[in-house]
Design a protein around this nucleic acid. Sequence first.
DNA 1: CAACCGTAGAAAT
DNA 2: TCTACGGTTG
Length: 723
Amino acid sequence: MLTKRIPVILLFPPLLRLLDDSARVFASSFGLLISEKAFQGLERRKGPGSDGDPGFAAAAAINHAAYPCAGSSRADRGGGYLLLASQGRHLLQHINYCMHRVKLLQHHGVKPILVFDGGFLPMKVDQETKRARKRKENLERAMEHEAAGNSVAAFDCYQKAVDISPSIAFELIKVLKQEKVDYVVAPYEADAQMTFLSMYKHVDAVITEDSDLIPFGCSRIIFKMDKFGQGVEFRSSLLEQNKDLDFTGFTKQMILEMCVFSGCDYLPSLPGMGLKRAHALIRKYKSHEKVTKHLRYSGVSIPPVYEESFKKAVWAFQHQRVYDPEKECIVHLSDVPQDIGEDLDFLGPWLPPDVVKGIAKGDLDPLTKGPFQVETSNSVLVVDKAFAMENSETIGRRKKLELPVQKNVLTNYFCLASIQAKRKFRAPKFTPKVLMKSSSPCSSNPDSDSTGSDEMPLSSATDQSQDFLLNSGHSNDKLPVTPSMEDRLTNRSNKCLGFPLHGSSVGKRCPSPLQESYQNAVNRKSHEHGTELKCTSLENKSVKRIVSTSHFFSENSLSEVANVDQNIVSCKNKEDGTVVLNDHPVSLGEPKPISFLETSIKKRKTAHPFDLETLPLRNVKSTPAIAGQGNKDENSKNFGRDISHVNDYSGIAEKSMEKFVSLMNSFRYSSSGSRASGLRAPLKDVRNTCSMRTNKAAVDFSEFSYKPRKNTARVVSSPSKFD
DNA sequence: CAACCGTAGAAAT
DNA sequence: TCTACGGTTG
């Protein structure tokens, strides 16, 4: 998983752990934006390809990586073709996995937009070249091993020498084009791009594994979404209600500075400075200037460069260059301040509109800014062959497809907790009126009580993926498409957004037998999740672009899910007879009391000093969302604030949180238990003999000393550059 | 000085 | 995720 490879990112998951109230387990699938990182397992390693030649030119790397496969267990299949196919299998797994997620979201009426990483930010080039160097070393080592006849060791090194993610992205984009799923390749970082889309309400939420989205200021993030569509939701608006760390009075700026202090991609943290200390310091001194001042005053020697680097890191979070799909040009995430200086290249060099557009569409290599060097036809061939091979294998033996499993234990923990909670979860008594009209999946199906059917979604997920595979494999022979409301809707939304691609649209083919089996599986799953579907539809009131779910299911008249989902769509239509984006699907009446919050949050509920309005929202409106009324714009703008639906998840959330908190209680922050709280005076004037953690942005901390420890001397990196 | 805490590196996956 | 370590608290 990505976070294991990049220590810098590791620094933020602790923050995630500390979020309880604002990070809630949600039990329905929603959210509109998927980062490729959400599909973990997708990236074994982030960064350039071997030989310092980064990015998408990974096809060459595939050859290298594939080569040792011949010597491995797959040798029996023989030949170079197999080598590539073997790699293709990996590609396929990832693509398959991604598409499963896409379909899952689409099934729940969510329109995903996949966001890919683009070029490197100058600030990160150091890291990337280091990674590239390591890969090169591994490649050389692999060749040595190979020459020595040690194929196992060689294979190991070959694996380390390869960056497969660009090739996955490249192939995935092809599939996305075929499937008419929206995507966008960021000019630089996907995180910034996703934040941009979220900020300007092109999407309602971001699904990702990367907690960098928090310092970026993304207001609604869904972490660790599993294959059931469950995950942990983060809302910046609920941050104040967090218990483990007290964020009351924190502005977005403070959160950002806290994160930078504790270490980020753009700036390594000071030794001994972790999230807790950063939090305590920011809490007390409010701004990074005052914090550094205080640290210096306390005798900590901080290099003069630090403040400048700190500012740059903050700016990189705030003003990074991203692609504006509306204007079809490169823009800053937010307007740059005056004092930022002349040279803005550290935010990502400016790019001409045609280039950045080409990159966004996946037509241009974000690194070379030119056409891809990859031999497309070949790779297609390889992948197609791999598809065929995979299919014959999986269908023939009905072998369980090896989807990348979420290995993160925290994730698993959450999912487990959610599943456990789900077993005991009963339909909320409160049901939206509109939904009552149709046959509810819960009421009509005796199995809707999900007890004991946990394996089901698993297998259905597998089926689904396989089915998808099959379809993709034959995706050239597309069946006639009938124009529909959804199509119009789709076109419209695309037009207005200017995304590279089309609208979503899954179910435009006649259901194949496999598809039908998938449908059945989905239906069964839907029954199981009946109540959650209702929640989903509740959620959807704030979802900006709901497309095609009903279409998908309308071809399967048996689907009760379809009824529900169609209801949503029909509600969307009812205002003026045409499909309206951003409309409320259901009328909820009075906002419900928030039981979850009431029970688990004792903190005061004051006006939010956490200043959401500091964000450069284009359509800012402070009117609180009132469920069931208001115009469409308001709905989408205020989605982050209407938490009435929380009611429905309370059981799940409490259950999960209870376990979560007990597991994570080592992180408990109690204001009364003074030990952890408050500021610890750092050790004074002790020379920091240790080296810095290595793979971070290059900042010279040779002068710096802060809470040094003996054991830090064990750090491997030889600080030659600090000499 | 025991108990506890946060950080950081190693190990496992 | 696990664990060792140095540091703080009372």
